[in-house]
Design a protein around this nucleic acid. Sequence first.
DNA 1: GTCTATAAAATGATAGAC
DNA 2: GTCTATCATTTTATAGAC
Lengths: 191, 191
Amino acid sequence: MAQTDGRKGEIIQMASKLFRERGYSAVSMRDLAAGIGVKAASLYNHISSKQEILSSIIISIAERFTEGMNAIVSKKVSVKNKLEEMIDHHIQVMIDNPDGIACLNNDWVHLKEPELTYFLDMRNGYEENLRKILKEGIKSKEIKQVNVEVMLFSMLSTLRTLHLLHEKKKGIKTDNLKNEVKQILLTGIMN
Amino acid sequence: MAQTDGRKGEIIQMASKLFRERGYSAVSMRDLAAGIGVKAASLYNHISSKQEILSSIIISIAERFTEGMNAIVSKKVSVKNKLEEMIDHHIQVMIDNPDGIACLNNDWVHLKEPELTYFLDMRNGYEENLRKILKEGIKSKEIKQVNVEVMLFSMLSTLRTLHLLHEKKKGIKTDNLKNEVKQILLTGIMN
DNA sequence: GTCTATAAAATGATAGAC
DNA sequence: GTCTATCATTTTATAGAC
């Protein structure tokens, strides 16, 4: 779960915001400290390194994605239902922490072992589960006979970058966003 | 057009590759020089700053996107046709320089003025033109009555990150990729 | 728990020999 | 056009006073 209270939570929140804006490597510990209103050295009373902050941000979100997906794949419902639940869950995780999502997307390359492998395993597992759902849908004719990889990629591209839309259109209600994304990803745009 | 010959071209190519892998801020001039097989100081005989390299990479691609889109919007063809041509063009630009595209996507925030404004104007213009096509399609009933912004966003998300799919599936032929992306973006995945 | 001071390394860039 | 040497800054992180 996401740290939000206490100094450590404050550090992680501010780091998420700055990493989102400029990227992990372009944000210094001084920048981060200044954003909070303390000196850089003071940060080290709450965290042990810049790396640890990045890991905290990314891993907690990746675990939430993984748990949600694992709960959905094995359900005894239609493929359409599974895809809808997956999209809803993905969007909810984004809504709860858009800065962290942006950070996960852009800066996971800067994770160090063993967190890097742990993250990549979760990411691959997530993709593999979605691939399984799509293949099941093709088999049952719920889904068109198109290239699974392109289909998979297109859905994930939209979902993974949705924080950018969320940022630009702050007005849009969560339920509307979920419904509109579901409609477009599942049934396309052409009449 | 993309520089590819001469030392300067070599520098830009290697920079595109490294910026793609690690991001602009995480690649040092020493890293870049080592990738080419010279010392960092030697780079400055061909370029004036690290910033200039980033600008070279991003601006030339953004101009190509802009030119292509401008040529398409005003054509006297159906909306479906325009969208297909737009997708084909977008994918072609990506195929010709996948590293540069990745760099444009991830590192445009590190552009400095006046290039930053020039880039953002082109980017906004591109989006505005695509929005215009989609609205035209909604009016003519070629396109479904869904939220234009979500539709626009979903298409651009997929197109903008397509270098990631291209990297993972090197086997796929360009024409197949174009056709599959067109089918999925335009008609969706559900039967 | 925050501060000042500082260490040790890395960074973008320049000067000048060859 | 490339090199060595170097400058001025900035970086992450630690030590120790308060």
